[in-house]
Write a protein that binds this DNA or RNA. Structure first.
Length: 493
RNA sequence: GGCGUCAUAGCCAAGCGGUAAGGCAAGGGUCUGCAAAACCCUCAUUCCCCGGUUCGAUUCCGGGUGACGCCUCCA
């Protein structure tokens, strides 16, 4: 089978470029992780899911990926949150690392190979700052150390901004003070203030500035130059520009070959932000919608594109997940424990893998890949319910092969990787709770209807069906008896 | 003001020069005592507008219009 060349959109070049690993067969990937001062919101979750699928796909393609995603656990926001709650900043950060990991697991995010923390990287950060000072790229001022942006020739090459125009627009915010030589200079190291976490350094007690931690952690685990660096779109400036400046001024080498940025999740036509008060936490979203459905929703739009978050889309995603799982349940019942012998297949199940590859290799075209999935599941259903050929063993063999394809793709997407019957039941349980349904009553209706139908009293049977429907419950008749499901509707918060 | 992204059917969404994937919704059908699920069929002569390049443009270029983002913490 042909394996298409992977092309990735590189923010640095504003173009899709062929992925050329520094070391053949291997890839170093760094993704800017959460600042752990609160629970993650669904916007974070979208970005992390995007890179989760990207790393899974890269591995699917046979690359040995070293995946690093950090925790920023020393930061102004954490200190402020700790002040507000009266907690120790380090302890608060540690607590939210734990909460993040729980959320990440629930969302089916694979664990990175390394999840470094700022608090555990202080010696490397101090060494890096020291190097920058020694090379004349940074200077000490009071107890602080600043990076001197005017001395770094390629500054702002990622964002394409202009330093002078930037400062012209900054107005009152960044006046030239006593401490900084230039308003654009940024802190590598901040002198300690009372009540803040601090560490010893050649410049006295203090803590790292923003930006520097990622430079230190990426070089520690991936080397001075690595393949892919990811993060949200908002990190381009200043965070990634500053990372490039610090790292490249220190090493004299290119920090990263390819910079990838994920698009935002919008709520009510605007970016989610604290100031607008429209933040939805991931864990709250996962109470309302199945985590896999949430992943599927994220994957419905290309990772660089804005995605509007709303209840209708979420409900659609869950309905779609139900279709996938109903199909898989049916196939599994049809196929498990049976021997269909050896021989030819109907059609070519592997073509779906090729089509999937074609989409994903083109800058990870998630929605294109999902389109391929539709064809796969349609074929599965068609073969199971209306087989176009009479050769039953052949149909069985093809079903088995197709099911195998589904499994392989589900490992990349991180959806419908559960036991179908379990997933379906779990979803129904959640719907029952959300709607406050009385299961005993539903089963009572089913029993009454069974009796009515056995007495050929179909009018009564239909009346009972209608009664259930009024409650939001659908009866499903089959030769094995009557089961039921909750009519799709998103659970309210 | 500077930088950047985007504009495709009722809705969501691919498409990257060769004549519009996929999903939801809707309508019709098969199946069913009635349903549900599944399957089949229908559903954009057209891709915000105006120019240009080309044999050919939704796709490239120029100019509009509109939306969003970054420039302050942010995934």
């Amino acid at each position: 089978m042909s394996t298409p060349l992977i092309r990735v959109y590189n923010t640095l070049q504003h173009a899709k470029v062929p992925l050329e690993p520094i070391t053949p067969g291997k890839l170093g990937v760094y993704v800017c992780g959460p600042t752990v001062y609160s629970y993650v919101h669904i916007g974070n979750a979208r970005t992390f899911t995007s890179f989760d699928v990207i790393v899974r796909y890269l591995r699917f393609r046979g690359f040995e990926v070293k995946y690093v995603r950090n925790y920023t656990d020393v930061d102004d926001k954490i200190i402020n949150a700790a002040k507000a709650s009266g907690e120790d900043p380090i302890a608060l950060a540690a607590r939210f690392v734990g909460e993040f990991e729980a959320d990440a697991k629930a969302l089916h995010l694979i664990a990175p190979d390394v999840s470094p923390k700022v608090s555990e990287t202080i010696p490397e950060i101090v060494a890096l700052v020291k190097t920058l000072v020694e090379k004349g790229a940074a200077y000490v001022s009071g107890g602080d150390v600043y990076f001197e942006v005017r001395k770094f020739p390629g500054y702002l090459k990622l964002s394409g901004k202009n330093l002078d125009e930037l400062q012209a627009g900054a107005g009152e915010r960044e006046q030239k003070g006593e401490v900084k030589r230039d308003p654009g200079d940024f802190a590598l190291w901040k002198g300690a203030k009372p009540g803040e976490p601090s560490w010893d350094s050649p410049w006295g007690k203090g803590r790292p500035g923003w930006h520097i931690e990622c430079s230190a952690m990426s070089s520690k685990y991936l080397g001075e130059t690595f393949d892919l660096h990811g993060g949200g779109l908002d990190l381009i400036f200043p965070h990634h520009d500053n990372e490039i400046a610090q790292s490249e001024a220190a090493s004299g080498k290119t920090l990263c070959h390819c910079w990838m940025h994920g698009g935002f999740l919008d709520l009510d036509g605007a970016k989610m932000s604290k100031s607008l008060g429209n933040v939805v936490q991931l864990r709250d979203a996962m109470k309302r919608v199945d985590p896999e459905a949430l992943r599927y929703f994220f994957l419905g739009t290309h990772y660089r594109q804005a995605l509007a978050f709303n209840d209708k889309m979420l409900a659609d995603a869950e309905t779609r997940m139900e279709y996938f799982y109903e199909t898989l349940k049916k196939i599994d019942e049809r196929v498990t424990g049976k021997d269909f012998g050896q021989g030819a297949l109907h059609g070519d199940p592997e073509r779906f893998i090729a089509q999937f590859d074609e989409q994903m290799s083109d800058d990870f075209n998630f929605s294109g890949a999902l389109g391929v999935l539709s064809g796969l599941f349609a074929e599965l259903n068609q073969l199971a319910d209306k087989p176009p050929v009479k050769d039953k063993p052949m149909v069985g063999r093809t079903l088995v092969a197709l099911r195998g394809v589904v499994t392989r793709l589900s490992k990349v997407l991180g959806v419908f990787d559960d036991v179908p019957a379990d997933w379906l039941l779990r979803r129904r349980d959640r719907q029952v709770v959300a709607k406050g349904l009385d299961v005993a009553k539903i089963e009572g209706l089913i029993a009454d209807r069974k009796a009515a139908r056995e007495a050929k009293n179909y009018a009564e049977g239909d009346r009972l069906r209608a009664e259930a429907k009024a409650m939001g419950v659908e009866f499903i008749d089959s030769p094995q008896g009557t089961t039921w499901k909750v009519i799709a509707e998103l659970a309210t918060a």
